[in-house]
Computed example of a mutant assay.
Amino acid sequence: MSGPGGISDLDKNRALAEWLEWQLRKARNRVRELEVQEERERRRREQAHAALRWKIRPQRSSSAALVHRGDCALYPVEGGFLTREETMIAEETMIALAEPDIEACQICKPETGLVDG
């Protein structure tokens, strides 16, 4: 049945449904964009935090133990990090680096972060 303007209630409701579906698609796309953005930011924060930590690869039969920065890709292990905020650990790490059987990674140069600041 048409109203005074010539558009039926059915047509009005179909148009409304299409508009609401368009709005829902826009909102879902925006949610996906924000989720991707949030995940990127989380990874960036984790990487920045890892750069402020250190890890020690245990000694192997053919090589010395190595101290790495937390974000060094040559020793990608989770957990067991030493942090700069733990002053005693940073000092102990510097002492460990002075030992003949413990070396600093030549790629990530962890001693730079220990003595700076």
Results as ranks from 00 to 15, higher is better:
Ala65Tyr: 00
Gln47Tyr: 11
Lys109Ala: 11
Cys72Arg: 03
Arg25Lys: 14
Leu24Gln: 12
Ala98Cys: 12
Trp54Gly: 12
Leu114Tyr: 00
Phe81Gln: 10
Thr112Arg: 15
Val115Ile: 10
Ser62Pro: 05
Ser8Pro: 06
Leu82Thr: 08
Ala51Lys: 07
Asn29Val: 02
Ala15Thr: 07
Val31Met: 07
Cys105Ser: 09
Arg43Glu: 12
Leu24Gly: 14
Glu38Ala: 14
Ala64Pro: 05
Ser2Cys: 08
Glu86Ser: 14
Cys105Gly: 12
Glu91Met: 10
Glu39Phe: 01
Gly113Phe: 02
Phe81His: 13
Leu34Asn: 06
Phe81Cys: 12
Gln47Asn: 10
Phe81Thr: 07
Ile95Gly: 08
Ser61His: 09
Val77Leu: 06
Leu97Ile: 04
Glu21Thr: 05
Gln23Asp: 09
Arg14Asp: 12
Thr87Pro: 08
Gly6Phe: 00
Ser63Asn: 10
Arg53Gln: 14
Gln23Trp: 00
Leu114Val: 02
Ala90Val: 06
Arg30Tyr: 05
Arg40Phe: 04
Met94His: 04
Leu20Arg: 12
Cys108Glu: 05
Arg60Ser: 15
Val31Asp: 12
Thr112Gln: 13
Val77Lys: 10
Arg69Trp: 01
Gly6Tyr: 01
Arg43Asp: 04
Asp9Leu: 15
Leu20Asp: 12
Ser2Phe: 02
Asp71Ile: 04
Ile89Asp: 12
Arg14Asn: 14
Glu99Met: 15
Ala90Pro: 03
Ala48Val: 06
Leu34Gly: 05
Met88Asn: 13
Ala73Trp: 01
Met94Cys: 14
Ala64Tyr: 00
Leu97Asp: 01
Arg84Pro: 02
Arg25Thr: 02
Lys55Ser: 06
Gly6Thr: 02
Val77Arg: 12
Glu39Arg: 08
Ala90Ser: 11
